[in-house]
Design a protein around this nucleic acid. Structure first.
Lengths: 272, 272
DNA sequence: GTGTAGTTTGAATCCTACG
DNA sequence: GCGTAGGATTCAAACTACA
């Protein structure tokens, strides 16, 4: 797929259906204004974990300790958030929508900045986890969900895409609600590195991205993921005939995503 | 109960197990520092209503559809939020905790300010509604949940109250999770005015407040509700042997709450 | 192939008392 | 403030091993 990349790296076409490596705040500048139909953003959560956590059976929890999740302060996280949210708003079509996912560590800051920038929230969605990690020490409630925000760029635009009937049919003929019960990404679906460990510490389940794309885009729509990770958004887009622009700053995730997308293409070639 | 009220209206004792009418930002000043064990706050979220609340003598802003008005509204809501969150933090004991409930209209602003003031979030909880109002026009997902934030005043204090075993026993012997499936407040439980219409537009289910108080207070703890409404928090506190301070600005809600509490006391007198 | 038991693991702001 | 020892603490899904 790199061979097919046009030489003009500033054109939008050179980014479409590609996984581009780089800081999203820079790559986003290559995208012209009002060209994107949907943004899905899974930014770093700024977890601020302190100590190692030991399970009751004395094993160690494989926590999120990646450098990309480290921020010096809330202020720094806020600046980062405003930067990418602002760029995403610029490239979105006026009736385009954005989805952002997070936990209590970061979702309030994202939501607040999103409102301040003029996005108009349509729904907040909770991903209720079928199999969350328990609270081993029994000092809080089990953290069993994550939060998503769905917002349209321009409040006045009522013609954002929402495939109401398709959602209804996916929910046994009843209106799709704001609580989505889905399992974590584990097992075969979870990408592994060469040593057999999880490649990405926070890979999202494909079912989550499929529902989002089926709900809020049409065939041929352009989907942008500024924190592409190992490519779940791109896979969901490809599976349902949507175009995508995937940006990811970590080279090893980029390679994992590209390989994953090759496998998806091969499968669809065999079955078509 | 008014007859039993001490004459010194500045003492904390004069507020305890009473429904006090007034603006919470003023009444809160009567409460000494670090005296409250738990705050439950269900603040208003309608920005238009907020404008009249903060600037009662100014002209109402019409349709809020330009950027300046929108920014002004958010700013005023933010100032209001910071004011009551700050006062609540002052009166909370160092190991005291706060619960705030809201929807996507206001919860991001509350959560962000709460973090900025130094509260330390322990959990976010979603109240998943068993019987939400459908989205009649089919243009969004059914809004089927509300968000709660649980935070401790001082991050370093690990001795906040969390009745782990009691929550576990309420959940069939398994850890209580962050998703709470509860019905709306309807039927007999819902307070009505003299014409038979609901007295308060957003009365919370008693089961929600009972769970919160059973989870995060001990017997005899002091519970503060700065937006007391029709007294659900006070009823839950009274039923479980906790003391309360309830503040509410609307006189008709105050009267509804006082009458409701009289009924609760009569019932417990008969059964004891 | 089928069924069962055992093992692994997941975005986690996960303890307390005493020197 | 810090270091250390004592003690209480987990759920569901998917995978593996084995009969």
């Amino acid at each position: 797929m790199d061979a097919a990349m046009p030489e003009d790296s500033n054109s939008l076409e050179s980014l479409i259906n590609q996984v581009t490596c780089g800081d999203c705040r820079e790559i986003l500048r290559r995208i012209p204004e009002e060209t994107v139909d949907l943004v899905f953003a899974d930014p770093p959560y700024n977890l601020q974990l302190q100590n190692t956590l030991i399970r009751p059976n004395q094993t160690k929890v494989d926590a999120v300790d990646d450098d990309w999740d480290k921020f010096a302060s809330f202020t720094e996280y806020d600046e980062f958030t405003l930067a990418w949210l602002g760029e995403c708003r610029r490239v979105l079509k006026p009736n385009g929508t954005i989805w952002a996912i997070g936990t209590y560590h970061n979702i309030y800051r994202i939501g607040k900045h999103l409102q301040d920038l003029g996005y108009w929230i349509l729904n907040d969605i909770v991903w209720v986890k079928a199999n969350p990690m328990p609270n081993f020490r029994g000092v809080r409630f089990t953290n069993a969900h994550e939060n998503l925000i769905w917002a349209v760029k321009d409040k006045r635009r009522k013609d954002y895409v929402f495939n109401y009937q398709e959602m209804k049919s996916l929910n046994a003929g009843k209106q799709m609600r704001s609580d989505w019960y889905l399992s974590l990404c584990t097992g075969e679906e979870r990408l592994k590195d060469e040593t057999g460990r999880k490649l990405h510490s926070t890979q999202k389940p494909l079912a989550l991205l499929e529902r989002i794309i089926l709900a809020a885009t049409k065939e041929g729509s352009l989907v942008l993921d500024p924190f592409g990770g190992t490519g779940t958004t791109a896979v969901a887009a490809a599976l349902h005939g949507r175009r995508y622009v995937l940006i990811e700053v970590e080279q090893r995730y980029v390679e994992g995503a590209r390989e994953r997308l090759r496998r998806v293409r091969n499968v669809s070639r065999q079955t078509s």
